[in-house]
Amino acid sequence: MAAAAAAGAGPEMVRGQVFDVGPRYTNLSYIGEGAYGMVCSAYDNVNKVRVAIKKISPFEHQTYCQRTLREIKILLRFRHENIIGINDIIRAPTIEQMKDVYIVQDLMETDLYKLLKTQHLSNDHICYFLYQILRGLKYIHSANVLHRDLKPSNLLLNTTCDLKICDFGLARVADPDHDHTGFLTEYVATRWYRAPEIMLNSKGYTKSIDIWSVGCILAEMLSNRPIFPGKHYLDQLNHILGILGSPSQEDLNCIINLKARNYLLSLPHKNKVPWNRLFPNADSKALDLLDKMLTFNPHKRIEVEQALAHPYLEQYYDPSDEPIAEAPFKFDMELDDLPKEKLKELIFEETARFQPGYRS
């Protein structure tokens, strides 16, 4: 834990890192770190609560700039109880001085990944967590956004079992017609939660990839272990087919990539493993919904509104309290091709509203 900075004593240090967030945020305490930044909790002297502050230093890398800009653009436009918001952003007053960006968010005690390492969940908890994931996802999908990296560590939890989806750095506007060349190379989302079509096709992607990830998360809540822990690309596919069985001819016809289709045709026939054999203690309604989410063919996979209306979630289902976005989200430009200098300018502009004396 960093010592509390005395008023006016300059930035606090946390594990050798400068955290320049005073005077409003003090009493910093280390939480963890990701690929390009550290997260601390801090005391907000204005709202009198502890908050989470993520320090991001992305400006050396085009990919990190892209992810940072995506996350900020999306989260500043989203407003939903099951999606983490941005409360404040701290950065230098000029673009030349801006080396880091500090993002202030609600402090959540833990995440689903940490929880599943230590606790076996009751059916009631599984049901409530799944409902909140789908409630947040309904809003995301209504904005025409794909999260693309749903996994237990991106689901934040607090002691009252509130759940918030975080990390929109890989999110995209849904565009089933656009052929994202190089899709697989830039697709760094965790393999275990990846839909089979991501490994088999490169053309376009749809909201059904997020539903697949939610199915993987439900299976993990039922058993405290990942359902498809593939060691590499082909191993991942083999794990999936080992449980779902061989795809039907109709399902194979959806695979545009001939090499991928021929690979699947070359494999020995596998039978589907019954879900109640894998999860003998699970609620039968939970397994019915799991089956509809972990469907090989993305066109037959359940959609988020149908999933919310499934009998497993009937005690929570309330369409009048499951809000959607006001308007579909649009990125003005494809960020993939922009140089990091341009992305830095866009991050600077996007964060201006939090600067003292800002006038829109």
Rank of each mutant, 00 (worst) to 15 (best):
A2T: 14
A2M: 14
A6Y: 12
A9S: 12
A9R: 11
G10T: 06
M13W: 02
M13E: 12
G16I: 00
G16L: 06
Q17H: 14
V18C: 08
V21C: 08
G22W: 06
T26M: 01
N27F: 04
S29N: 11
S29R: 13
S29W: 00
I31H: 15
G34C: 03
A35R: 12
A35C: 12
Y36V: 15
G37Y: 12
G37W: 11
G37C: 15
M38A: 12
M38E: 08
M38H: 09
S41Y: 15
S41D: 12
N47A: 12
N47R: 13
R50T: 13
A52V: 14
K54D: 02
I56S: 15
E60F: 09
H61E: 01
Q62N: 12
T63W: 09
Y64D: 15
C65Y: 15
R70W: 02
I72E: 06
I72P: 01
K73N: 14
R77P: 07
F78H: 02
I84N: 15
I84V: 00
I84E: 02
I86T: 00
I86F: 14
I86A: 02
N87I: 14
N87Q: 02
D88M: 01
P93W: 02
P93G: 09
P93H: 04
T94H: 10
M98F: 12
M98Q: 11
D100I: 08
I103S: 11
I103P: 09
Q105Y: 15
M108S: 03
M108I: 15
E109F: 08
E109W: 04
T110K: 02
Y113N: 15
Y113V: 03
T118D: 02
T118I: 11
Q119A: 13
H120D: 05
L121E: 09
S122L: 07
S122T: 05
N123S: 07
Y131M: 01
Q132C: 00
L134T: 05
R135P: 03
G136Y: 04
G136E: 09
L137I: 02
H141Q: 12
A143D: 14
A143V: 11
V145M: 09
L146S: 04
R148M: 10
L150A: 01
L155R: 00
L156I: 03
L157K: 04
L157M: 11
N158L: 10
N158F: 04
T159R: 06
D162A: 08
K164S: 10
K164V: 04
I165V: 07
G169H: 02
G169N: 09
A171S: 14
R172G: 07
A174R: 03
A174Q: 13
D175W: 04
D175M: 08
P176D: 08
P176W: 05
P176A: 12
P176N: 07
D177P: 12
D179G: 09
H180P: 09
G182Q: 02
T190H: 02
R191K: 05
W192V: 07
Y193C: 04
P196E: 06
P196H: 13
E197A: 05
I198W: 10
M199G: 01
M199Y: 08
N201P: 05
S202W: 11
G204P: 07
Y205P: 01
T206A: 12
T206W: 10
K207A: 13
D210G: 00
I211D: 02
A219S: 14
E220Y: 05
M221R: 10
L222F: 10
S223T: 14
N224P: 02
R225P: 03
I227V: 07
H232P: 10
L234N: 04
L234R: 02
L234P: 05
H239P: 10
G242H: 09
I243V: 08
I243M: 03
L244D: 01
G245I: 00
G245D: 12
S246N: 11
S246R: 12
S246W: 01
D251H: 04
L252K: 08
N253P: 06
C254A: 10
C254Q: 07
I255D: 06
I256R: 11
Y263S: 01
Y263T: 05
S266A: 00
P268W: 01
K272N: 14
K272I: 15
P274Q: 15
R277F: 08
R277Y: 05
R277C: 11
L278Q: 15
L278R: 04
L278I: 05
A282V: 07
S284I: 08
A286M: 02
L287K: 02
D288M: 02
D291E: 12
T295R: 08
F296G: 01
F296Y: 14
P298A: 09
H299G: 03
K300S: 05
R301W: 00
R301I: 13
I302D: 08
E303V: 13
V304S: 09
E305Q: 03
E305M: 02
L308F: 03
A309G: 08
A309D: 12
H310K: 02
Y312L: 12
E314C: 04
Y317L: 05
Y317K: 04
P323K: 01
I324Q: 06
A325C: 00
E326K: 13
F329G: 00
K330I: 04
K330R: 05
F331Q: 03
M333S: 08
M333C: 09
M333D: 14
E334W: 03
E334I: 00
E334G: 01
L335D: 06
L335E: 00
D336C: 01
L338E: 04
P339N: 09
L343V: 10
K344G: 09
K344F: 07
E350C: 01
R353T: 05
F354E: 12
P356S: 13
R359T: 09
R359L: 11
S360D: 09
S360K: 12
